[in-house]
Design a protein around this nucleic acid. Structure first.
Length: 280
DNA sequence: GGGAGCCTGCTG
DNA sequence: CAGCAGGCTCCC
C-alpha cells in the first residue's frame, strides 16, 4: 500500500501519540508478523521499554526503544499502523502494543508486512534494509547521484527507480507519476536517458513526493494514516489508475501495460520512445 | 531480465 | 471465474 509519502504521513501523525510512552503489554494475534523473533522473544525485549523516537528510512519505520534495540516495521501492501486512545474490540488486529496510555495497533489483511527486532546501530541483518539506497526525500539523493546510477545501465528506468537499493521510498504510483512528469517512457533503457532528462526526472520525483505528502498520501483502496483517515492525493494523480482516460497534457488515451512485472500507466505521446543512441 | 510466491479481497 | 492490487525476496 504505502510508498514514501504514505509512510511519512503515518510517521508524523503517529509520533506525537507514541513517542515518550512505555510499552506495558504486547499482544500478538498473528505470530507470522514477527519476522525475526518468537512471540516470547519479542515480548521479553519490548515490554517495559519506552518508545524514544520514530524514524523513517525509505518505506521502513523504526520505533527506537529505550536501551539498545528498535522495532523495525514494513507495511508492504496492506499494513496499517493505528493509534487507539482506549481499548476497543479489534477483530482485525494482527498485533497490539498496549502503551501507558492508548494502544498501537497493527492491521494487515494480506500479512505481507511485519516487524523485526533490530539493534539501533550497526547492521540489522534484515534482508534489504542494510543495503537501502539514499532516501528519495533526503539530501543525498541528488541529480548527480541519479545520473551515476543510470550510467551504462541496460535496465528499464522504471525497474531501476523501483529498486530500493538505488533509491529508497519510491513505489509503483510515484514512479509512474514522476516518469510522466519528466516525459520519459517507463520502459526506456536507463543508459539512454540524457543528462537533461535525468535532471528533469530528479526534479519530478521531488515534486510528486512533496505533492503526495502535502495531501496526506494517496488512498486507492487501503491506505489510512494512524487516525484511520484516508489521503487525498489520488485526486491529483496524472496517470496512475487513469488508463483509457485522456492525457492531461495532450489528450491522447493513457495506456496500461506491464513493465518489470508491475501495472504501468503512461502517455504514449508525451512519453515517446527515444533513439537508443542518446547518452548521459 | 522474467516469473513464482507470499496472502486476502475486490472488480469485471 | 480470472485478474488485479501503494511490495519485496528468492530462484532461475
Amino acid at each position: 500500500m504505502p510508498e514514501l509519502p504514505e509512510v511519512e504521513t503515518v510517521r508524523t501523525h503517529l509520533a506525537p501519540y507514541v513517542v515518550g510512552k512505555r510499552i506495558v503489554q504486547v499482544e500478538v494475534n498473528a505470530p507470522n508478523v514477527l519476522k525475526n523473533t518468537t512471540v516470547p522473544g519479542f515480548r521479553n525485549r519490548v515490554v517495559g521499554k519506552r518508545i524514544e523516537g520514530l524514524v523513517r528510512r525509505g518505506k521502513y519505520l523504526q520505533f527506537l526503544l529505550s536501551g539498545e534495540q528498535a522495532v523495525l516495521v514494513h507495511l508492504r501492501m496492506t499494513g496499517k499502523l493505528l493509534y487507539r486512545p482506549a481499548l476497543q474490540e479489534e477483530p482485525r488486529a494482527r498485533l497490539r502494543l498496549h502503551l501507558q496510555k492508548g494502544l498501537l495497533v497493527y492491521e494487515d489483511v494480506r500479512t505481507f508486512g511485519g516487524f523485526w527486532l533490530v539493534p539501533k546501530t550497526g547492521p540489522t541483518g534484515v534482508p534489504g534494509y542494510d543495503t537501502l539506497g539514499p532516501d528519495a526525500a533526503g539530501e543525498a539523493f541528488t541529480a548527480a547521484y541519479l545520473r551515476q546510477c543510470l550510467a551504462g545501465k541496460k535496465r528499464m528506468i522504471k525497474a531501476l527507480l523501483l529498486d530500493q537499493h538505488v533509491v529508497a521510498g519510491l513505489g509503483n504510483i510515484y514512479v509512474d507519476e514522476a516518469l510522466f512528469a519528466a516525459h520519459i517512457r517507463p520502459d526506456r533503457q536507463a543508459a539512454t536517458i540524457s543528462r537533461t532528462e535525468v535532471g528533469k526526472l530528479h526534479a519530478a520525483i521531488g515534486r510528486v513526493l512533496a505533492q503526495g505528502l502535502a495531501h496526506g498520501g494517496t488512498t486507492i483502496r487501503d491506505f489510512v494514516d494512524s487516525n484511520g483517515r484516508e489521503g487525498t492525493n489520488q485526486s491529483f494523480l496524472q496517470v496512475y489508475g487513469r488508463e483509457g482516460m485522456p492525457c492531461p497534457h495532450c489528450g491522447t488515451r493513457l495506456v496500461y501495460t506491464k513493465v518489470s512485472g508491475r501495472g504501468t500507466r503512461y502517455c504514449p505521446h508525451c512519453q515517446r520512445k527515444r533513439r537508443r543512441t542518446q547518452h548521459v
